[in-house]
C-alpha cells in the first residue's frame, strides 16, 4: 500500500481502491454470495415472508436429485460439454500446429485473420446458420444427395448431435489460440532431433509436441468447457425436441416457473461444475490463472 501511495498520491490511490472495490465487491463477490444465500431459501408467497416458513433450507438442491429428468439433463450437459471440448481439441490441433510450425509468416497472418473473422460475428447468427445447413431439407443433405453420397436425407439435428456440432464450431477459436501459442514456443530443433532419431510422425507428436503444448491445451479445454456448459443459445437453436441443456432448465425456473430460489440453486450447481473443472485442469496440467488470462 505504501508503494501505491508514493507512486500515485492519496487522491488517485483513493480512486483506484474505490473503483476496484466497486467492481470486485459490488459487481463480482456480493452478487455471487447473495445468489448462493438465495438458493437456500424457500420460494414463498409474499404473505409467508418473515413467518416461520422463511428459513434456510437445502431443499432446492434436493430437487435436482428427486427429478430424474433434471439429473439426466445435468449429466448430458457435463458429457456433451466434455465431448465438445474433446472434438474441439481434435479439430484445432492440426490447425494450431500448422500455424505454429509449418506456415510461413504471411500464411500464418492470413490464416489468423480468417480464423478470427467468423468469431467476431454473433454466436446466435452463426448457430442459426448451422440450423439452416443441418436442416432436414437443408443444403448439407442437398449437396450430399446431389453427389450421390446418400439417397435420402439424414436427420442431422437429432439428440445432442446438433448441439455438439454447433458448439465445436462456436468455440473453436478458444482452443486454436492457446494451443497455437503453446506450440509456437517449442524449439524447432526438438522436432528435428526427434525426426533424426527416426521417430515416426505419430511419435513426434505424442512424445514431443503434445507434452509441450499441455498448458495451452489445458487453457483451451477450460475455455471451451465453461463456454459449452454455460451456453444457452446453441442448445436452444440446435437442440432436438426432448434434449434440453441444463441452462435451459435454469431459464425455465426463472421465467416460466417463477421460482428464482430454485433457479439460483441450479445456477450455483452449474457454477460449481465449472469451478470444479477449472480447478481440476489447473491442478492436473499445472497452469495458473495468469496463463489463462492470456
Amino acid at each position: 500500500m505504501k508503494a501505491v501511495l508514493s507512486r500515485y498520491g492519496t487522491t488517485l490511490t483513493g480512486m483506484m481502491v474505490l473503483a476496484t472495490f466497486i467492481w470486485l465487491a459490488v459487481m463480482v463477490v456480493l452478487p455471487y454470495l447473495v445468489m448462493v444465500e438465495f438458493s437456500f431459501r424457500p420460494n414463498l408467497l409474499p404473505a409467508d415472508l418473515g413467518t416461520e416458513k422463511d428459513h434456510l433450507t437445502a431443499d432446492n438442491y434436493g430437487t435436482l436429485f428427486r427429478n430424474t429428468i433434471h439429473i439426466n439433463v445435468f449429466i448430458r450437459t457435463i458429457w456433451g460439454s466434455a465431448l465438445a471440448t474433446f472434438l474441439c481439441l481434435c479439430v484445432s490441433y492440426p490447425v494450431a500446429y500448422f500455424l505454429a510450425k509449418m506456415a510461413t509468416a504471411k500464411q500464418a497472418a492470413v490464416l489468423l485473420l480468417l480464423l478470427v473473422i467468423p468469431f467476431w460475428i454473433n454466436e446466435i447468427l452463426r448457430t442459426f446458420a448451422w440450423f439452416i445447413i443441418l436442416a432436414y431439407n437443408g443444403p448439407l443433405n442437398g449437396v450430399l444427395q446431389m453427389f450421390g453420397f446418400i439417397d435420402k436425407p439424414i436427420r442431422w439435428i437429432y439428440g445432442s448431435n446438433g448441439v455438439i456440432a454447433g458448439m465445436v464450431y462456436a468455440y473453436i477459436v478458444f482452443m486454436v489460440f492457446p494451443v497455437y501459442n503453446a506450440i509456437e514456443t517449442l524449439d524447432r530443433n526438438q522436432i528435428e532431433a526427434a525426426r533424426d532419431l527416426g521417430a515416426s510422425l505419430w511419435r513426434i507428436h505424442a512424445r514431443v509436441v503434445l507434452p509441450h503444448a499441455k498448458p495451452g491445451i489445458a487453457v483451451g479445454c477450460i475455455m471451451v468447457f465453461t463456454a459449452a456448459a454455460g451456453s444457452y443459445i446453441v442448445p436452444a437453436i440446435l437442440g432436438a425436441p426432448g434434449t434440453r441443456w441444463f441452462t435451459e432448465i435454469i431459464y425455465q425456473w426463472f421465467f416460466e416457473g417463477q421460482n428464482w430460489q430454485q433457479g439460483s440453486a441450479y445456477a450455483f450447481l452449474l457454477l460449481a461444475l465449472c469451478i470444479a473443472f477449472v480447478m481440476g485442469m489447473m491442478r492436473v496440467f499445472k497452469v495458473g490463472l495468469a496463463d489463462i488470462a492470456k
Binding site: 452478487p31 465453461t226 428464482w260 433457479g263 452449474l270 489463462i292
Partner: peptide, 17 residues
C-alpha cells in the same frame, strides 16, 4: 480474472438477484 471463466448466464443471474 475470475469473471472471465464464469458462464455468462450465471453472471446475469447473480446480478439479477
Amino acid at each position: 480474472v475470475a469473471p472471465l471463466l464464469v458462464p455468462g448466464i450465471i453472471i446475469g443471474i447473480s446480478t439479477l438477484i
